[in-house]
Amino acid sequence: MKTGKANVLLWVITYLLPLAPAAWLIFAILNDHATANPVQYLERRSGDYALALLLITLACTPLRHLTGRSYFTAMRRSFGLFTFFYALAHFLSFIGLDYGWKFTSIQQAFAGKIFLWLGLIALTILLLLAITSFGFSRRKIGKLWQWIHTLTYLVGLIILAHFFLSIKGNAGTLTGTYFYPIFTFVLLLLLLILRLPAFLSLVEQLRGKINKLLRK
């Protein structure tokens, strides 16, 4: 049974907690905690937060399956929208802050840089997902909605390629700090496996046990 307090807590987790990283970024920049190169700091951190939130978003449905708690649906939509919010901040800090909205500079920056184009593709798909995340569009497009929103996994893969190629080192020989993108890739695969039909029956079995544990 949900008490009023639990509802408030859920609301805070769903709608306020994802704003904490943004609050930190603003605080860090205003108080000189954003390194000697705050523009780069903002670029990197907003990207990190977008990726982390994407994974958290993808964890919501498996968690709902495992626990049967319906509030994970609301969380999924909110976290998904915040993923787009941080991705957009990431993009805007790049073209606006870093390249000062100068078209020729931005064009130069994108020239031949596959990882930047991948980021742009991921952002475009996230925009599509954000627009269609509201109830009315879900009702309007029905089955298509389901299909469109499975693209979230594709976004995850594209973002990981974007991340992977942006690292200073050698992606071919894994010379450099490839731990984080690889770790994130494993998490993404795990989350994908949790959605496979074969796995869902196992989840059904687990669900009873988990609910028993939660009630204790």
Binding site: A36, V39, D98, Y99, G100, S105, Q108, A109, G112, K113
Partner: peptide
């Protein structure tokens, strides 16, 4: 001569905003 990750035509002086 651009680097695969960084176009090298501009730079940011540390402490400045504009490239």
């Amino acid at each position: 001569v651009p680097h695969p990750r960084w176009a090298q035509d501009t730079e940011r002086r540390i402490g400045e905003l504009e490239r």
